[in-house]
Simulated assay, not measured.
Amino acid sequence: MTHPVRVFVYGSLLVAAVLRAVLRRPAALQAARLDGYARRALRGSTFPGVVRRSGGITEGALALLSVRELRRLDRFEDDHYRRRPVRVTLADGRRITAQTYVLERRSRSLLARRDWSPSRLAGGGAARLVRAARAVTAAGQSGKLAWGL
Protein backbone atom coordinates (compact mmCIF):
# COMPACT_ATOMS: atom_id res chain seq x y z
CA MET A 1 0.00 0.00 0.00
CA THR A 2 1.59 3.26 -1.06
CA HIS A 3 1.21 6.21 1.30
CA PRO A 4 -1.27 4.68 3.75
CA VAL A 5 -3.73 6.97 5.49
CA ARG A 6 -3.93 6.64 9.27
CA VAL A 7 -7.51 6.47 10.51
CA PHE A 8 -8.65 6.38 14.12
CA VAL A 9 -11.76 4.22 14.57
CA TYR A 10 -13.81 4.25 17.76
CA GLY A 11 -17.23 2.64 17.20
CA SER A 12 -18.70 0.06 14.86
CA LEU A 13 -15.45 -0.12 12.87
CA LEU A 14 -13.76 -1.66 15.90
CA VAL A 15 -15.72 -4.82 14.99
CA ALA A 16 -13.42 -6.72 12.61
CA ALA A 17 -16.30 -8.04 10.47
CA VAL A 18 -17.75 -4.54 9.97
CA LEU A 19 -14.38 -3.04 9.03
CA ARG A 20 -13.71 -5.96 6.67
CA ALA A 21 -17.10 -5.44 4.99
CA VAL A 22 -16.36 -1.75 4.39
CA LEU A 23 -12.74 -2.20 3.27
CA ARG A 24 -13.30 -5.51 1.47
CA ARG A 25 -10.24 -6.91 3.24
CA PRO A 26 -9.17 -7.69 6.79
CA ALA A 27 -7.32 -4.85 8.49
CA ALA A 28 -4.92 -4.86 11.41
CA LEU A 29 -5.85 -2.49 14.21
CA GLN A 30 -3.45 -0.92 16.70
CA ALA A 31 -4.77 0.28 20.06
CA ALA A 32 -4.95 4.07 20.28
CA ARG A 33 -6.59 6.81 22.34
CA LEU A 34 -8.12 10.14 21.35
CA ASP A 35 -7.90 12.76 24.09
CA GLY A 36 -10.18 15.78 24.26
CA TYR A 37 -13.14 13.98 22.66
CA ALA A 38 -16.03 12.00 24.14
CA ARG A 39 -17.66 9.04 22.40
CA ARG A 40 -21.40 9.48 22.75
CA ALA A 41 -24.37 7.34 21.84
CA LEU A 42 -26.70 8.64 19.15
CA ARG A 43 -30.43 8.54 19.78
CA GLY A 44 -32.15 5.71 17.92
CA SER A 45 -28.88 4.28 16.61
CA THR A 46 -26.31 1.62 17.42
CA PHE A 47 -23.56 3.99 16.25
CA PRO A 48 -21.63 6.51 18.31
CA GLY A 49 -20.23 9.88 17.42
CA VAL A 50 -17.30 11.73 18.89
CA VAL A 51 -17.52 15.35 19.97
CA ARG A 52 -14.98 17.65 21.57
CA ARG A 53 -15.13 17.56 25.35
CA SER A 54 -12.54 18.91 27.73
CA GLY A 55 -11.08 15.96 29.64
CA GLY A 56 -12.74 13.46 27.30
CA ILE A 57 -10.96 10.23 26.43
CA THR A 58 -12.03 7.92 23.61
CA GLU A 59 -10.44 4.50 23.37
CA GLY A 60 -10.22 3.09 19.88
CA ALA A 61 -7.76 1.84 17.30
CA LEU A 62 -5.62 2.98 14.42
CA ALA A 63 -6.00 1.46 10.95
CA LEU A 64 -3.85 2.05 7.87
CA LEU A 65 -5.96 2.50 4.73
CA SER A 66 -5.47 3.20 1.06
CA VAL A 67 -7.04 6.30 -0.48
CA ARG A 68 -9.65 4.06 -2.16
CA GLU A 69 -10.54 2.47 1.18
CA LEU A 70 -10.78 5.92 2.75
CA ARG A 71 -13.36 6.89 0.11
CA ARG A 72 -15.39 3.76 0.98
CA LEU A 73 -15.21 4.76 4.63
CA ASP A 74 -16.36 8.29 3.74
CA ARG A 75 -19.49 6.82 2.10
CA PHE A 76 -20.15 4.54 5.07
CA GLU A 77 -19.90 7.39 7.57
CA ASP A 78 -22.42 9.64 5.76
CA ASP A 79 -22.97 13.37 6.02
CA HIS A 80 -23.57 13.48 9.78
CA TYR A 81 -19.82 13.08 10.22
CA ARG A 82 -16.87 15.11 8.99
CA ARG A 83 -13.45 13.53 8.59
CA ARG A 84 -10.90 15.60 10.48
CA PRO A 85 -7.23 15.32 11.43
CA VAL A 86 -6.68 14.60 15.13
CA ARG A 87 -3.76 13.67 17.37
CA VAL A 88 -3.98 10.19 18.84
CA THR A 89 -1.82 8.44 21.41
CA LEU A 90 -0.57 4.93 20.69
CA ALA A 91 -0.09 2.26 23.36
CA ASP A 92 3.67 3.01 23.45
CA GLY A 93 2.95 6.69 24.22
CA ARG A 94 3.80 8.10 20.79
CA ARG A 95 1.42 10.80 19.50
CA ILE A 96 0.64 10.82 15.81
CA THR A 97 -1.78 12.54 13.46
CA ALA A 98 -4.65 10.47 12.08
CA GLN A 99 -8.02 11.07 10.46
CA THR A 100 -11.25 10.37 12.33
CA TYR A 101 -14.95 11.05 11.85
CA VAL A 102 -16.32 13.73 14.17
CA LEU A 103 -20.05 14.31 14.51
CA GLU A 104 -21.02 17.48 12.64
CA ARG A 105 -22.17 20.41 14.78
CA ARG A 106 -25.50 20.52 12.89
CA SER A 107 -26.07 16.85 13.84
CA ARG A 108 -25.52 17.28 17.58
CA SER A 109 -29.27 17.01 18.14
CA LEU A 110 -28.74 13.27 17.55
CA LEU A 111 -26.61 12.96 20.70
CA ALA A 112 -28.02 10.87 23.52
CA ARG A 113 -27.29 11.83 27.11
CA ARG A 114 -25.02 8.82 27.63
CA ASP A 115 -21.60 7.71 26.50
CA TRP A 116 -21.42 4.83 24.00
CA SER A 117 -20.03 1.39 24.73
CA PRO A 118 -19.06 -1.37 22.27
CA SER A 119 -21.53 -3.59 24.16
CA ARG A 120 -24.26 -1.81 22.16
CA LEU A 121 -23.24 -4.01 19.22
CA ALA A 122 -24.03 -7.25 21.06
CA GLY A 123 -27.05 -9.39 20.29
CA GLY A 124 -27.05 -9.33 16.50
CA GLY A 125 -26.19 -5.66 16.15
CA ALA A 126 -22.84 -6.42 14.55
CA ALA A 127 -24.42 -8.77 11.97
CA ARG A 128 -26.87 -6.03 10.92
CA LEU A 129 -23.98 -3.58 10.62
CA VAL A 130 -22.03 -5.97 8.41
CA ARG A 131 -25.01 -6.27 6.05
CA ALA A 132 -25.44 -2.49 5.99
CA ALA A 133 -21.72 -1.91 5.42
CA ARG A 134 -21.71 -4.27 2.45
CA ALA A 135 -24.80 -2.66 0.96
CA VAL A 136 -23.61 0.93 1.45
CA THR A 137 -20.15 0.36 0.00
CA ALA A 138 -21.29 -1.91 -2.85
CA ALA A 139 -24.01 0.43 -4.06
CA GLY A 140 -21.98 3.57 -3.50
CA GLN A 141 -24.78 4.78 -1.25
CA SER A 142 -24.19 7.25 1.48
CA GLY A 143 -24.64 6.53 5.03
CA LYS A 144 -25.10 4.13 7.83
CA LEU A 145 -27.62 6.36 9.62
CA ALA A 146 -29.87 6.19 6.57
CA TRP A 147 -30.19 2.49 7.38
CA GLY A 148 -31.69 3.28 10.78
CA LEU A 149 -29.06 1.30 12.63
Rank of each mutant, 00 (worst) to 15 (best):
72 R>D: 02
72 R>S: 07
72 R>I: 00
72 R>Y: 01
73 L>V: 03
73 L>S: 01
73 L>N: 00
74 D>W: 05
74 D>G: 08
75 R>K: 10
75 R>H: 15
78 D>E: 11
79 D>S: 11
79 D>Y: 10
79 D>V: 08
79 D>Q: 09
80 H>Y: 10
80 H>M: 04
80 H>Q: 09
81 Y>T: 06
82 R>K: 05
83 R>M: 07
83 R>S: 09
84 R>W: 12
84 R>A: 13
85 P>D: 05
85 P>H: 08
88 V>Y: 10
88 V>I: 15
88 V>E: 11
88 V>S: 07
88 V>M: 09
89 T>C: 07
90 L>P: 00
90 L>I: 10
91 A>C: 07
91 A>S: 11
92 D>W: 06
92 D>N: 13
93 G>C: 14
93 G>I: 14
93 G>R: 15
94 R>N: 13
94 R>E: 13
96 I>K: 01
96 I>M: 00
96 I>N: 02
97 T>V: 08
97 T>E: 12
97 T>G: 12
98 A>S: 04
99 Q>W: 15
99 Q>Y: 07
101 Y>P: 01
102 V>C: 02
103 L>R: 09
105 R>M: 11
106 R>T: 15
107 S>G: 06
107 S>I: 02
107 S>D: 05
108 R>I: 01
108 R>S: 03
108 R>H: 08
109 S>L: 13
109 S>I: 12
109 S>K: 13
109 S>V: 12
110 L>M: 15
111 L>D: 05
111 L>R: 03
111 L>P: 03
112 A>Q: 02
112 A>F: 06
112 A>D: 10
112 A>T: 06
112 A>L: 05
